[in-house]
Design a protein around this nucleic acid. Structure first.
Lengths: 102, 102
DNA sequence: TATTTTACTTTGTATCTCAAAGTACTTTAA
DNA sequence: TTAAAGTACTTTGAGATACAAAGTAAAATA
C-alpha cells in the first residue's frame, strides 16, 4: 500500500454517494423519490450522484412502466457491492488506526 | 434526524481530509511533508485541504523557527477532535445499518 | 559562489456540486 | 374536454472545489 488513503474509493467519497450505496446495500431496489427523500437532497443533485455511480458501473438503472406510468428503479451491481465493501473496510482501517493509538 | 446522512460532516467528506484528521488524531503534531507523504498527494493539494480544515477551525497551524529554519506544524483543535469523533460515529451508523440488514 | 534541495504558496484550469428551470407525461378539477 | 396541478425525472449553468504546475525564499551542499 502506497499511502494510508489509497484504498479509499473516490467514487464513494461523497456523503450522498455513500448514502445511496448504503441504501442499495440494504434494499434490493430503490426508486428515485425514495433515494431523494432518504438523503434529503434535490432532484438534480441526486440524479447527478446516481449518474456518477452508474458511470463507473456500481449502480444499475431499470426503466419500466407500471400502470402506464414510467417507473425507474435503481440497484447496486455486483461490482458496486464488492467495491463498496472494500471501501468500508478501508475507512474502518483508517479509523481503527486512529482510535487504537489514542 | 432529518435524513440518514445529516450527521455526516461536510468538512471531513473527502478522503484527503479524512486522512489528515486521522493522522492528527493519532499524532499530536504533524508537519507539512509528513502529511503530504503519508497521503501521497501534491504540495498544492495538501495545502488546500489543510487550509479548508483550518478555515472551519478543525486544524491549527503553528509556525516557528527551529535552528533558524522555518518549521510549520499542524495539530487538531479540540472541536476538530470532537467533530471528527461524531463524524466517525455517523459513518459507522450508516454502515452498520447497511451491514446488519444484509 | 553557484546549484540543489526543502518547504511551502500562488495561480489557473479542470472537474464537481448543486439548485433552478425545463420536459413529458398523468391525474384531478371545472 | 380542457385547464391546472402534480409527479418523475433531465438539462443547464453558475459557483465551489480540487488539483498540479510553477513560483518563491531560505538553507544545505558542492
Amino acid at each position: 500500500m502506497k499511502n494510508i488513503i489509497s484504498n479509499i474509493n473516490k467514487a464513494f467519497d461523497h456523503r450522498v454517494r455513500l448514502g445511496i450505496m448504503s441504501v442499495l446495500m440494504v434494499n434490493e431496489y430503490a426508486d428515485f423519490t425514495s433515494l431523494k427523500e432518504l438523503l434529503g437532497v434535490t432532484d438534480g443533485n441526486i440524479a447527478s450522484h446516481i449518474k456518477a455511480l452508474e458511470k463507473v458501473g456500481y449502480v444499475k438503472v431499470e426503466k419500466s412502466f407500471i400502470d402506464r406510468k414510467p417507473n425507474t428503479r435503481y440497484s447496486a451491481t455486483k461490482s458496486g457491492r464488492n467495491d463498496f465493501q472494500k471501501h468500508i473496510a478501508a475507512i474502518e482501517n483508517l479509523l481503527n488506526q486512529t482510535q487504537s493509538k489514542q
